[in-house]
Amino acid sequence: MSDITVTKGAPARFRATTEESPLARWAMIAAAVLGLGILVFAPLIAVFVEALAQGVAASLASLATRDAQEAIKLTLTIAAISVPLNAIFGVAAAWFITKFDFRGKAFLITLIDLPFSVSPVVAGLCIVLMFGTNSFVGGWLVANGYPIVFAMPGIILATMFVTFPFVARELIPVMIEQGRAEEEAALTLGASGWRTFWTVTIPNIRWALLYGVLLCNARAMGEFGAVAVVSGKIRGQTATMPTTIEMLYQEYLSVAAFSLAAVLALLALVTLLLKTALEIRHADQLAATHRH
């Protein structure tokens, strides 16, 4: 009889040892919700609350000013130039790294990743030292009428520096996983290199490419540190949306600063929404780990 009572009691205890007790589980969920609520949701909500502090009309009026309009235009232009360039780089680098075997591959990947670990301010500093009027290259360019620093090319370079690894990082793991067999089959059947690329490779990597471009674009439009250093923040000329937000904020024009910030926050939300949709619908065609 005593044996039976032991087996009767055992299953309940056994189940409890392969998962946490309900109390521990709910405590952890509560900690996660509370932590994200304070750290992430609160700042997001605060942007919109501050932007609408004096009503929708005041907020919209601040966005209609010339400075705000110029900043939005500049930021869109910068993204429209730097993101496609980085996408081309990302595809080329991923192709070079995954379709060929060469010495120093790991080192090349480390170099491509380098911008992730360099401070944006240091990145901006590097560009100023390279292309500023005091430098050899910069002096010559300015003398010939092509200023880089405190002008659009410098902002584009700074933006490209900080977003440099995004597309390549996304494509490399996906293309390693897919291997070379499909491209080799297409080539054997007589397709040209470009035809193979457009009809075999691109359809295989399009979602990963879109994913990388999405993240690259969000960062490109929002970059602040590197752009603050190289742009000179000249109103109506080299002030991007983030640097204009800083100037408005420091002039205590809170509604104007937060209204512009709200536009960027909406962009971030749309980015996250598209990113989540991609992860749900095309998870099999994206890289397994997403760090950035």
């Binding site: 942007v47 929002g222 602040f224 937000i245 910030a261």
Partner: peptide
């Protein structure tokens, strides 16, 4: 935090 611009 990745998507929201740092200045914002």
């Amino acid at each position: 935090p990745f998507a929201l611009p740092t200045a914002v």
